[in-house]
Design a binder for these strands. Structure first.
Length: 353
DNA sequence: AATACGGGGCA
DNA sequence: TGCCCAGTATT
């Protein structure tokens, strides 16, 4: 009978981690601020995607004071393309709180650090264990996958309350001597060995402690219910130029999807056949003359899809909307835009005037 | 408990 | 296509 042994599990996991861990930029520091930045960026985002963003971010905002004093547009520009932009705003709010009320020292208790904007149960445990060496659980998707197999936990990991089961489990088995390597070892194992599909069990350092492997259930775990389909929204998008070689751009609302990011004027299609050019007049105060059809664009978000038709043309009138600006090509490079708008802008630039 | 919130990579 | 990713805030 195979029986889980936390003593040998810890040793196998940590020895493997210390030997095989990838060299990642945030593993070269103990600065709680830099660990914090990395953990926020890594939320729902792959390591390879984060690396260049992290390096650039630390280069531009090397200290909490630098980030606290940054203006939001510059901050969002650094986050451009990374997604979940409220992470950036919440990070700055949290950092400002630490600068102002914690004397620029990242708190060392779960209660205090969890009160910071954008710091949930996972991030709190990650910072406490990695930066401060505290034996705190840090349960993310990797940890739930790995432990669901190792401990044969069949609870649905899509359900919120299931995370608590894994937090209790980690609290029970965590290595109090090196909680940083233990937590990061679990995540590293999930990332490179104990993968969602085709786990590499023959290379796994904790195979002897894996109950799922012992009973041949590793490919059936974790149990996770599926989420529902995304719905599609249709838009007409307009790249509008005036006679001063400026382009009309609009700042999105300060809450909701892509908050405070910049976009070209866009009008949702209620019915597919409708011509939205007259609406440009009403909603944006411009008289648009269509010249080029840039074609269809499609962009898939996690919960919805944008299907867009994009047109280029001129307007002779100035927009009066508070949320709109006429920007030159050089100025457009400075404002934060979501990827669908970047794709449209790139297509326009590559097409040439 | 469910939903909103980006974007990219991979089978 | 659909799933997954070092999740959190809001309702």
């Amino acid at each position: 009978m195979n029986e889980f042994n936390k003593i040998t599990f810890r040793k196998s996991l940590i020895d493997w981690y210390l030997e095989e861990k990838r060299n990642l930029p945030w593993r070269e520091t103990n600065d709680p601020y830099k660990i914090w930045v990395s953990e926020i960026m890594l939320q729902q985002t792959r390591v390879d995607t984060v690396i260049p963003y992290y390096n650039r971010f630390i280069d531009i905002f090397p200290t909490m004071e630098d980030l606290a004093n940054a203006n939001e547009e510059k901050l969002l520009k650094q986050w451009e393309g990374l997604g979940y932009y409220s992470r950036a705003r919440n990070l700055q709010a949290g950092v400002r709180e630490v600068v102002e009320t914690y004397n620029s020292i990242v708190p060392t208790t779960r209660n205090e650090i969890s009160s910071l904007k954008g710091v949930g149960p996972y991030t709190a445990g990650a910072i406490l264990s990695i930066a401060y060496g505290k034996p705190e659980h840090a349960v993310d998707g990797n940890v739930m996958r790995v432990l669901s197999r190792v401990l044969l936990i069949k609870e649905d990991i899509a359900k919120p309350k299931t995370r608590k089961i894994f937090e209790v489990a980690v609290t029970e088995i965590i290595d109090s001597q090196d909680p940083s390597s233990f937590n990061q070892g679990l995540m590293e194992l999930g990332a490179v060995i104990c993968t969602p599909t085709s786990p590499k069990c023959l290379l796994c350092p904790v195979r002897d402690n894996c109950t799922a492997y012992y009973v041949g259930e590793q490919n059936n775990l974790p149990v996770k219910t599926k989420n529902k389909k995304t719905k599609a929204l249709h838009y007409d998008i307009y790249v509008v130029q005036n006679d001063k070689k400026q382009f009309l751009m609009e700042k999105r609302a300060e809450t909701g999807l892509l908050a405070n990011m910049y976009q070209f004027p866009m009008i949702e299609l209620a019915t597919k056949e409708a011509d939205t050019i007259p609406l440009l007049d009403i909603r944006y105060g411009i008289h648009f003359t269509k010249e080029i059809d840039l074609g269809p664009f499609k962009h898939v978000f996690s919960h919805l899809t944008w299907e867009m038709n994009c047109f280029v043309g001129h307007s002779t009138e100035d927009s009066l909307l508070e949320t709109c600006k006429w920007l030159t090509i050089e100025e457009i490079k400075e404002v934060p835009m979501p990827v669908p708008m970047l794709k449209i802008w790139q297509a326009y630039i590559e097409r040439g005037n």
